[in-house]
């Protein structure tokens, strides 16, 4: 019989299976408890580390909750005006085609004020990755209705629920960009469970590899939560997301490259 193993016997460098990547800075995230932004930041950082992209990554952060994203990933950053990240990234990639260029945008940034920049960057097939966090609300400004707010969903500017006759319908931006010839890989994922986090990370890794192969725009939507804006606990918000967001924004790949055109380096 082996001796009972104490915690101190397990916590040794050789037994390490998971620690925060060094690409994340030591700064404490400013996000509310349970917010999916932090999780997406971390797996993005992990992909950058694992794919050896730290020296070539140039990120473009948006206006919205993730405006301060540049405080958290130890790479070069540009902070774009509201909605303009795809235009900013377009120029970066065209002028520095060997760099790994991506935008990280929320639903207000990408699907409302930045609709034109999003669609045209995707339509030109700019060789960039776009990460789109969709939590159906404007978090930073205090929970107002977003272009992605569900029908009937309450927000501070739709306090009786989104009345689609008066306020219009939620827009499914990922469905739209999937129809454009310039996009190469379009997928919708989430980060509320360990399995979903792993799938999203895989999607980000694929997008990074496709960019090296100059394949065109890779677009990853992450359906996420906003516990503060939705006025729920984090665990409740994830359950509400499964029950309400996923039926409207179903998870899964929307545009997957054919086997022959997606030759990536296996790691």
């Amino acid at each position: 019989m082996p001796q009972a193993t104490g915690i101190n016997d397990i916590i040794k460098p050789e037994n390490l299976v998971y620690k925060r990547t060094e690409v994340m800075t030591p700064n404490i995230l400013h996000y509310c408890p349970g917010c999916g932004h932090g999780t997406v930041h971390r797996i993005l950082a992990e992909v950058i580390e694992e794919e050896g992209l730290q020296t070539e990554a140039i990120g473009v952060s948006p206006v919205g909750c993730s405006v301060l994203l540049y405080n958290y990933l130890d790479i070069d950053w540009q902070e774009a005006a509201h909605g303009r990240a795809p235009a900013v990234a377009t120029a970066i990639k065209r002028l520095l085609p060997d760099k790994f260029v991506f935008t990280y945008q929320g639903d207000g940034d990408l699907a409302a004020i930045g609709t034109a920049e999003t669609i045209h960057a995707c339509n030109r097939g700019e060789n960039i990755m776009i990460i789109f966090i969709n939590n159906g609300i404007y978090g930073m400004t205090g929970g107002q209705m977003a272009p992605t707010t569900l029908p009937g969903m309450k927000s501070s500017t739709s306090p009786y629920g989104r009345d689609v006759k008066m306020m219009g319908n939620p827009v499914k931006m990922t469905d739209i960009v999937a129809t454009l010839p310039g996009t190469f890989y379009v997928t919708r994922q989430s980060v509320h469970t360990p399995a979903n986090v792993r799938k999203t990370k895989k999607a980000i890794r694929k997008a990074a590899q496709y960019q090296k192969l100059n394949k065109g725009t890779c677009f990853i939507e992450v359906v996420s939560n906003c516990p503060s804006g939705w006025k729920m606990t984090p665990v409740e918000s994830n359950r509400w997301m499964e029950e309400n967001m996923f039926p409207f924004y179903p998870l899964g790949d929307m545009k997957v490259p054919q086997e022959s055109e997606s030759q990536t380096t296996n790691k």
Partner: peptide, 18 residues
């Protein structure tokens, strides 16, 4: 040729920042 003047000036921002 950008999709708008707005996009064009933000492309300038991105390029200038490089």
């Amino acid at each position: 040729q950008a999709e708008s003047e707005v996009a064009a000036i933000n492309m300038v921002y991105g390029g200038a920042a490089c």
